[in-house]
């Protein structure tokens, strides 16, 4: 059986440590990117075919861990490319001084609001959204205002901004819409919050388990259920104020600047060889051209009336104060 062969090889690998591949390009990323159902394997194959080289992925827990690891390694990092930071982290990432200009033509990059950064290049994006259960929610909220003021008996599971990226996303969304009145809005929303989970998985588990009728997730979440499970029970609510945008980016490190493959990979990343994998493995929107149209389900998803985003520097400067404000309201 396969298991026995694996047993031996894994036991050996654990004893000896992984063999260093004769890698030419080292890419640091987050785990769900390299999971066997994630985009990693497809991207790796496609790029290795064109470049005749070897990509080595190093995956850490998530985007925040990615930045922390890079900070700790400093200039000694092995990474040529760091892939998987989001727009809330780019300011701090730039401050490390570890990134080099990418020097890649951005004309094929397509994200809402356009993109002109000389250090980071987007590879996908998504919008935060309140996803609800159509079987238990007859009148979904039509705006963030509706969500805040709505029936406290209809509950939402959200994530903690202290520990989770979507949690921080909702915090910023509320801030973008309510500004200085965000604290009051949170005080009202509090009654509808079933619980605040440490990460996305716990909240989504509560939602699909029927504990909460709504959950903070992405506009693309229903696409997964429809395409992979043929299930149209879950839908995202379209909010009149607009939806908060999350763009995921990659950058070339100072070390990678000396490796011609790094630039080649970033250019490849903006094209179909990479982008084709994004929609149905990362369940985000592609940030560049794909070779064929997306599954029609993606066209039926919520199209935000307006794109909301707070720039990375403002987020970095205010995150602590905003989280403290959130804490004091929510802990009451």
């Amino acid at each position: 059986m396969r298991c026995t062969i694996l047993t031996t090889s894994i036991a050996l690998a654990l004893l000896a440590g992984p063999v260093q591949a004769a890698g030419k390009l080292t890419v640091y990323t987050y785990e769900s990117f390299t999971a066997e159902w994630g985009p990693g394997p497809i991207v790796e194959k496609a790029f290795e075919e064109t470049c005749g080289c070897d990509i080595e992925f190093v995956s850490v827990a998530d985007g925040v861990a990615l930045l922390n690891r890079l900070k700790l390694e400093g200039a000694a990092t092995e990474a040529d490319i760091v892939l998987g930071l989001d727009t809330n982290l780019t300011y701090e990432a730039r401050q490390t001084g570890l990134f080099a200009p990418h020097g890649v033509d951005l004309s094929s990059v397509d994200v809402p609001g356009g993109w002109s950064d000389d250090t980071f290049v987007p590879f996908d994006y998504g919008y935060f959204a309140v996803v609800y259960d159509t079987e238990t929610v007859s009148e979904p909220p039509a705006s963030l205002h509706d969500l805040v003021e709505g029936d406290p008996a209809v509950k939402i599971a959200i994530q903690d901004p202290r520990t989770s990226t979507p949690g921080l996303g909702l915090l910023l969304w509320m801030k973008a819409v309510y500004g200085d009145d965000a604290a009051d809005a949170w005080a009202k929303l509090k009654d509808r919050v079933l619980t605040v989970t440490p990460g996305w998985s716990e909240a989504y588990g509560l939602f699909t388990g029927g504990e909460a009728q709504m959950v903070l997730s992405y506009t693309t979440s229903p696409a997964y259920h429809r395409i992979a499970e043929d299930n149209d029970r879950y839908a995202a609510a379209s909010f009149a104020e607009g939806h908060y945008l999350q763009i995921e980016v990659a950058g070339i490190t100072e070390k990678g600047a000396a490796n011609p493959l790094a630039k080649e990979f970033i250019a490849f990343m903006t094209g179909p060889g990479f982008q084709d994998a994004i929609p149905e493995t990362n369940w985000m929107f592609p940030a560049g051209k794909t070779s064929k149209p997306l599954n029609p389900v993606f066209d039926e998803l919520v199209k935000p009336a307006k794109t909301l985003i707070i720039d990375a520097e403002t987020v970095a400067g205010n995150r602590k104060a905003w989280i403290d404000e959130w804490l004091s309201v929510m802990s009451r």
Binding site: D160, R162, T163, K190, V193, L194, T195, V196, T197, P198, E202, L206, W326, L327, M330, S331, R332
Partner: peptide
């Protein structure tokens, strides 16, 4: 966090 109901 999950069962506590909030950051309190």
């Amino acid at each position: 966090l999950m069962l506590g109901g909030g950051p309190g």
